[in-house]
Amino acid sequence: MSLIFDHVSYTYSPDTAYEVAALNDINLKIDDGEFIGIIGHTGSGKSTLAQHMNGLIRATAGSIYYNGQDIYDKGYKLKDLRTQVGMVFQYPENQLFGTTVFEDVCFGPKNQGLDEKEVSLRAFEALRAVKLPEEYAETSPFDLSGGQKRRVAIAGVLAMKPAYLILDEPTAGLDPAGREEILGLIKELHDKKGTTVILVSHSMEDVANYVDRIVVMEHGGILYDGTPREVFHYCKELEEIGLAAPQVTYLMHDLKKIGFHVDTDITTVPEARDAILRALGRKE
């Protein structure tokens, strides 16, 4: 199973004075079980790309294949695709509407046409997956804290049991603890349930610790595509387009410049500590 973009382009208001190319000839293959970060600053086309993945936006050119099928084929059910490729929007708590948390989470599976028993089973499973205590199921979602609301909104998508999960800036507006909580949940989903996760973000530091692959977007095109190490290799170029690599990567570059024997493709704090200790001859 895979999601394939074949020469996909998208233009806002084509043939008018407002014509803007949002995506430009994108070729991308996402395989089952991957944990991908799509990074780009505001306006780079990353959110537009994400909304193509479940057919919310229709490409103006090119094709998208999910499990080998062209999603733009006549008779292809986009509604089914959307339950397979789940999408959590930015500030997803803004879509909550149910009178209770439970009712809200049931919305997705109900739309899938499942029977009542299956719907509630899935809803509870999803709430467990986001670690929301069961006693909250019958409270109003509007009475929860910001972080809890966000988890309910994510559960609302998880309840559809999507094979692919796209999250657009899932940590926006949260404090550090909240950020780690959400990213931890997502990692668990990937590791335990094998969900393919596509994390759309502008924060390299958030993403670097979690994903296996980073796709960097700029001006509606893919600039880099590779493992975090490979991508952060271009940290100078990344900085120029306003996307910083993790601070420790820059530290390593600076140290190398003054003659330290350190690797420059380091992305995390423990790696950096060990590398510096080795360079100082304190550690083998």
């Binding site: 509604k79 339950t83 789940g86 803004n94 879509q95 997705g108 739309n111 998508v157 559809m160």
Partner: peptide, 16 residues
């Protein structure tokens, strides 16, 4: 704009 966003989000949850 917000309506547009909410509509898309609910469509992503299978709303018709």
């Amino acid at each position: 704009e917000e309506t547009d966003k909410i509509m898309k989000a609910q469509m992503a949850r299978g709303a018709d």
